[in-house]
Simulated assay, not measured.
Amino acid sequence: MTATTAQPSLLLREDDTGVATLTLNRPAARNALSLALLGALETTLAALAANRAVKVVVITGAGPGFCAGHDLRELTEARNDPDRGRAFFETTMARCAAVMQAVATLPKPTIAAVNGIATAAGCQLVASCDIAIADAHARFCTPGVNIGLFCATPAVALSRAVPRRDALEMLYTGELVDAAHAHRIGLVNRVVGDGQALPEARALAARIAERPASVVQGGKAAFLRQEGRALDAAYADASRAMVAQLLAEASEEGIGAFLDKRAPVWPQD
């Protein structure tokens, strides 16, 4: 196992056998997404996208919380700027949008290990990941309406992860929902015992990492392309993706091994 750190005070990174774990590391602030932390995430995700040794990315939080959203103290301080914070607000929202898109479109699968409260942009981060596993005590909300700020950007990810009516109820009320409710509406894949979200996420990531990276990554790209398309266009694109994979070495070996009743020997990615 190797361990590296990208900005020690903000974001920790640990690599182990194809799985990179990123830990938001502002526990005293419930891992709020300061502009600096967003920058660290953006830089690290770009590096992970280009790193062929990393096959799956797990995101979690240090301390008792996953992520409390934007750093409200930092945003409030910006109101003292001559423009009342407009430039800072625009920069923060643009960088946050870039980070959430980087998570959602990362070539490798992403898994959120939700170890505690995930609110506002923290809930957005959970919804942006491909898969989410939550501790039983985890809580989720989009509480902007309670402080005069509708969670419009978290709504983008949330509305793509859960049914419309469930998303709107969370957005309109700003109320906390428990992990069981988050599971029922599809915000998380499963709920595990307290303290088990990260081990469970890493175990799942390790199983995914055993699959051929070219197949998993090509499959994620195809999945993202077909989302939101008309049915005929989605099938046309998916069919092209299947043909391309059938012509690739991995499927030739995988199908051959299945027919021969043996374990596949995957080509090196």
Results as ranks from 00 to 15, higher is better:
89 F>V: 11
217 Q>N: 06
20 A>M: 07
37 L>T: 02
112 A>E: 05
201 A>V: 00
162 V>Q: 02
266 W>F: 13
226 Q>V: 11
94 A>G: 08
196 Q>H: 10
163 P>W: 08
102 A>M: 04
41 L>I: 07
269 D>V: 15
66 F>N: 04
87 A>G: 12
65 G>Y: 14
232 D>F: 03
54 V>M: 07
268 Q>I: 14
195 G>C: 02
86 R>P: 09
102 A>N: 07
163 P>N: 04
195 G>W: 00
120 A>M: 00
26 R>N: 03
80 N>H: 12
73 R>Y: 15
112 A>W: 01
206 A>P: 07
80 N>S: 12
148 G>H: 08
13 R>A: 11
134 A>W: 03
171 L>F: 06
135 D>P: 05
75 L>P: 03
188 V>W: 05
148 G>P: 03
235 Y>A: 07
102 A>R: 06
56 V>T: 14
25 N>E: 02
47 A>L: 11
32 A>I: 13
81 D>F: 10
229 R>E: 05
214 S>Y: 06
44 T>W: 04
37 L>P: 09
156 V>G: 00
232 D>L: 01
260 D>V: 09
1 M>D: 06
69 G>N: 05
57 V>R: 10
75 L>F: 13
138 A>F: 01
205 A>Q: 01
233 A>V: 00
5 T>A: 09
24 L>H: 09
254 G>N: 01
33 L>E: 03
149 L>H: 11
255 I>P: 09
152 A>M: 12
238 A>P: 06
128 S>K: 01
153 T>C: 08
223 F>Q: 03
106 L>C: 00
188 V>R: 06
102 A>G: 14
203 A>P: 05
188 V>G: 00
33 L>P: 04
112 A>G: 04
109 P>W: 02
196 Q>I: 08
158 L>D: 02
253 E>I: 13
95 R>L: 11
1 M>A: 13
60 T>R: 12
172 Y>E: 15
136 A>M: 06
64 P>L: 15
226 Q>Y: 08
55 K>R: 15
103 V>G: 04
33 L>C: 06
84 R>V: 13
230 A>S: 10
198 L>Y: 04
158 L>P: 05
24 L>A: 11
11 L>N: 02
83 D>T: 12
223 F>K: 02
91 T>G: 10
54 V>H: 07
150 F>I: 08
244 A>K: 03
16 D>I: 08
208 I>F: 01
237 D>H: 01
245 Q>C: 11
150 F>L: 12
248 A>S: 09
239 S>C: 11
237 D>G: 04
